[in-house]
Simulated scan of single mutants.
Amino acid sequence: MASRQTKIIALTEAGKSLAERLQSLIEAEVAYKPQPFAEQVQSFFKNGDRLIFICATGIVMRSLAPVLQDKYQDPPVLVIDEQGQFVIPLLSGHEGGANNWALEVSKHLNAQPVITTANGYLNPVYSVGMGCERGCPVDELERLLMECLEQSSLNLDQVSSISSIDIKADEVGLIELAEKLDKPYQIWDKNQLSEMEPLLSTRSEYVFNTVGVYGVAESAALLSTKQQTGQQPELVLNKQKTKKATCAIARSYSGVGGASSAEN
């Protein structure tokens, strides 16, 4: 698979002008009237490229329908009208990060984001959970964290804390990472973390036999967001790992209210 990029797809002269304006504000490639259209945009999508369409939503849905998988795997897709007034996160709003991306693009264009997913009008709180082998270098931990943020279309400012299990209370690499990034370092004991077991994406018997929970990174991320908001947490990014470290990102929402439509 080729490296993932951001593509702005336009079909009209007005759309092309808006695409070029947006290209000057974000790192992206403009694809003007790609041909054959459906084949080209499906290729972008299957490559994992983040897509911004400047056209009707119906065109986008009919073109991408054959290659849609699910909200955990599909890349984020935005749709913008030709006048640049509205930015709609059409696919992978929560898990793929399209909602947050729509907010960012809206600010660039001074446009109105149209968030239609459930909880779209609440304030998301994100926390990073990490686990590692004893003595894991801070550089490896930071590299993994940054890759996970990029994969989730999040930035460091959106992260409320870095958390782990209590046996990592003295883990130098994690402590240094939190200090370097100016984030609180939270630790939880295995009894607290075990409450998150039903929400884990995977359960590792090896990890359980070693530390008493089925997953450190996911459990810590989930519990941290729940503690901050008092609301049910969810995984934004399932556990990612290197040879020596693991990382997961969770979210819950603070505030009340919200849209009533279903998750896209």
Score class of each variant (00 low, 15 high):
30 V>R: 03
212 G>D: 11
5 Q>Y: 07
195 E>W: 13
264 N>T: 12
58 G>K: 00
142 E>Y: 03
185 Y>V: 04
31 A>R: 11
10 A>T: 05
149 L>G: 08
172 V>E: 15
8 I>H: 00
183 K>T: 07
184 P>T: 06
16 K>M: 13
136 C>E: 07
222 L>G: 05
122 L>C: 15
67 V>C: 04
162 I>E: 05
169 A>F: 09
221 A>F: 09
201 S>Q: 15
71 K>N: 06
96 G>R: 00
35 Q>A: 13
213 V>N: 02
13 E>K: 05
38 A>S: 10
136 C>H: 00
197 E>S: 14
148 C>A: 14
226 K>A: 15
86 F>H: 11
247 C>Q: 02
7 K>D: 01
223 L>G: 14
208 F>A: 14
21 R>W: 13
113 P>V: 01
32 Y>V: 06
150 E>Q: 14
256 V>E: 15
65 A>G: 11
18 L>C: 04
51 L>N: 04
142 E>C: 11
69 Q>S: 13
139 D>I: 10
81 D>Q: 04
158 Q>R: 15
154 L>N: 05
149 L>K: 08
90 L>F: 03
257 G>V: 08
35 Q>D: 13
240 Q>A: 10
11 L>M: 12
2 A>E: 11
129 G>E: 00
90 L>H: 05
171 E>F: 02
36 P>G: 10
164 S>R: 01
120 G>V: 08
254 S>L: 10
83 Q>Y: 12
98 A>G: 10
225 T>E: 09
80 I>S: 00
211 V>L: 05
251 R>Y: 03
169 A>C: 11
174 L>G: 02
222 L>D: 03
82 E>A: 12
251 R>F: 03
243 K>C: 14
70 D>E: 12
117 T>R: 05
114 V>F: 08
196 M>G: 13
212 G>Q: 06
194 S>R: 11
224 S>N: 05
153 S>F: 12
83 Q>W: 10
161 S>D: 09
154 L>R: 04
96 G>D: 12
150 E>A: 14
211 V>C: 09
153 S>Q: 15
201 S>P: 03
240 Q>M: 14
